[in-house]
Amino acid sequence: MAGTPEKDAISGVETTGHEWDGIKELNNPLPRWWAIIFYLTIVWAAIYAIFMPAVPLFGGFTQGVLDWSSRGALSASMQEAVAEQKPYLDKIQSLSPAQIAGDRELAGFVQAGGKSAFLVNCSPCHGQGAQGSPGYPNLNDDAWIWGGTPEDINHTITYGIRNAHEESRQNVMAAYGRDGLLSPAEIDAVTEYVLSLSGRSGDPEAVEKGKPLFENNCVSCHREGGAGDTELGAPNLTDAIWLYGGSKAKIIETLTYGRAGMMPAWEGRLSDDTIKLLTVYVHALGGGQ
């Protein structure tokens, strides 16, 4: 490609010498504004490489004089968020769950923070809306097995139920059938009696038969008339709420095999503040006492 560059006959502009299917490319200069911006980007790149992490090396990269990193930026913004939360958390630390529940200023923070903690830690069992499922209590309603005051809820979340923690709430619903404490016929009679407590039995004879059996075996925990006892974690048997189902078959199942649902202790896994947030959130779901 020696010699003088070829000139296009029509425009009088030099060609690049490249030809594709008879089409030649004119060697027009770049637009000046474009070229200036292009050179500026080169200058910018050089400056950027000095200040910011830029050039990959074996086993690392140049750090840049500003010492910026995306990890550092993230942790800085996390710290910022923590700093913003601090006045709220300080206040929460100094207040009891009941006081927090009554504090209008904290309401928004507690609802948002409580919901977020609930979704992460509690929703796997209790459901995203705390609606529960058989064996896992619905936290929206007004029936509380272990008590529905802020203190009760806080205790339950902190130490859990029937786990290895020494402060854990403990009780036993015996397996009357499996362990041979009651015969199937007796269990059937007790079941009819239990159904009668919420006005649902259709067999007065069986109810008569079941009453003394209930008084001998059940009243110690479930109290006179099946009213339940939150101190012992014995559910109220007269209401419309059934943790494991209130049909006759389900009640027979409960009496035969017993029930021993477990809730872990959250002490040590969650901070006291988070547990307080959860307490107030659960208390505010609608059934708190």
């Binding site: 619905n138 929206n140 309603d141 109220n236 419309a240 609608g286 059934g287």
Partner: peptide, 17 residues
């Protein structure tokens, strides 16, 4: 509220949030 749509209370009433 979408979840739960309604809550059954201990006295058998229905509550919506």
């Amino acid at each position: 509220d979408r979840n739960p749509l309604f809550v059954t209370l201990s006295n058998g009433d229905t509550r919506n949030n």
